[in-house]
Design a protein around this nucleic acid. Sequence first.
DNA 1: AAGACGAAAGTGGTTGA
DNA 2: TCAACAACTTTCGTCTT
Length: 312
Amino acid sequence: MAEHTYEFEEEQHEKGSTCPPEYIVFDEERGEYICTLTGEVVEESAIDTGPEWRAYTPEEKTRRSRVGSPLSHVLPDYGVLTTMGTYRDATGRKLESRARLEAERLRRLQAKLRTATSIEKNVEQAAREITRLVEALGLPRSIIDDAMLIYRQAAEKGLVRGRSLESVAAAAIYAACRLRGIPKTLDEIAEYVKGGRKEVARCYRLLIRELKMRMPLADPTRFVSRIVTALGLSPKVEKRAIEILIQARRKGLTAGKDPAGLAAAAIYIAALELNERRTQKEIARAAGVTEVTVRNRYKELVQKLKISLPAQ
DNA sequence: AAGACGAAAGTGGTTGA
DNA sequence: TCAACAACTTTCGTCTT
């Protein structure tokens, strides 16, 4: 039932963003996403990973060794304590159990150390991958940091194991884009990934769920200017298309719909109105959806917003 | 002939019993 | 875990310009 989806999403939207996405910035000092309007912490899960780490940037690579090393300093101490304890005053039985306890702790520490360093290795590899993708996609470099933050959390939760690093990295980038309201579709990002769209989408949903991220709804108006530019349409068309989308949103026609499809339809209408007609096929291609979707959204918008088109 | 339209069947994901 | 469901895609036949 369309009505339900709408109510649900609208509610989520209101709860999710008391502050609009464009005001959300990453505070490096504290490792939190905060809103510059209200000062509230938006992305709480960004800090639950412990005091040691910060956002990763390539320049920090050298300093990063600090993260893994403290554990290794601990190890020799345990060796000393163990021998002292065994040497002096205890019955053989007690000694045995105590030694066993120590050995147990040691083993746990070693396991921890091993996974810690392997995560570091993995994250470094991911940094290369993410940088590569962000550059290939022409995204702002700040997305690298955002994506790394997300990726690191995923890695520390063991979400990367058994999945391709590349796909998880791509998913992190997509998530970062969504958080920032940058209009990139999953398909565009998946184009550069071997695993393909399916896998990236799977990883993305996993990230959302496991890291408890709350995504702002993708805003169709953000897709408009890209499409308008690609088609060489005038700013008038862009303005009108955005008007249509805002109207549509008010009427609740946008919930659960592909934002690119909505943007495409709005542009199609605006272009018709302003005598800058483009074919559905052209617009569909520029928006990355099919003609059918453009058509369906177009019909819906015209009907529900009671837009009357000039006779051709 | 190209574009617009719409029906039908298939895909991949969500949701609720 | 499974079925119902919504949105989107692919494909294709039929009007319209």
